[in-house]
Design a protein around this nucleic acid. Structure first.
Lengths: 162, 162
DNA sequence: CCAGACTGATTGACGTGTCAATTATGCCCA
DNA sequence: TGGGCATAATTGACACGTCAATCAGTCTGG
């Protein structure tokens, strides 16, 4: 009877083994993120945030987007995007223009500098994803990872509303 | 023959499906981290960083540790710890004392305030881990997640040295 | 029309992280 | 013994994130 340990009276708490897996999972994801980020940085002077913004813009009509749409597209809060765009604009990766259709709005435009930086970053970045993630796992493990992620995300989505 | 797409000439790049799994994986981990962090924050006014520090200290001899050991124990750079301890000290969660054995060194001491905050945070935090992670997965998925994490970490460890 | 609510976007304050430089002390040996 | 190197820890500068407040422009109902 492991289910009546004092620490787990009122509501079930994770067992030591479950907690170990949790920590392993979250720390590994963090380590991966950090390694990818540092490679991206050293190979192209872009942060993962820069990369996400440039990717979205490079796929947009005329290399330009309304900033809200950009935020929605990459799943960022608008304030976060605003701060980030400020930093990217200083580095000339993007430019902000007023929006003709709505005077409140702003359009974010990919500059040639930004496009060039993105072009140079993409292959090494994808290669790193392959090397650090895809190649590390067997096809079965990769599929399992995908399934676990999808399951967790679905569960998260439903419990966030409570 | 999917293996000779133009984009994957010189060195194999991830396929669209592999990339999708990668993004799902990393974004899910990030979403989990963020949800956990916000629950911890609202339930106990502690950040995950605070929690990690308090956990280590609460398990230490006499609620005190040399700051390098603390850094090593939770896997942080010393500079990061130093900044964080400064913030925690302002909130009276910890105290810094000079070290008798080595005059360069500092000892970090858990205060009663810190111990109390940690006590109040631990059960809700573990409950959240259970709810958001453990309960979302089948036992098989949980085991698979653990295996994937271990494999990725091992691979990361060996390729970081290159 | 026009007051008030709504929306797009920015700002400021502050916590968090990294990197490089700095300070202070300990230690070793020529 | 004292010059030089290693080590403990902190600091400063700056990127990144979140939250709450703000500002300006749009829309809507009376």
């Amino acid at each position: 009877m492991t289910e009546n340990t004092p620490q787990r009276r009122k509501r079930q708490l994770p067992t030591a083994e479950q907690l170990r897996i949790w920590r392993d999972f979250i720390e590994t994801a963090e380590a991966l993120r950090s390694e990818l980020s540092s490679r991206l940085q050293s190979e192209s002077s872009l942060s993962p945030g820069d990369y996400a913004v440039l990717l979205a813009l490079s796929e947009a009509e005329g290399w330009r987007m309304r900033s809200s749409e950009l935020a929605a597209g990459i799943g960022w809060e608008r304030s976060r995007l605003s701060h980030h765009l400020g930093r990217m604009e200083r580095r000339a990766l993007i430019r902000r223009e007023e929006c003709a259709a709505d005077n409140r709005g702003a359009e974010v435009v990919l500059t040639p500098t930004g496009a060039e930086a993105f072009r140079g970053a993409t292959v090494p970045h994808l290669r790193a994803v392959r090397e650090l993630f895809v190649d590390a796992l067997t096809p079965g493990q990769l599929a399992a990872a995908g399934e676990v992620a999808a399951t967790l995300r679905a569960h998260l989505g439903s419990s966030r509303k409570l």
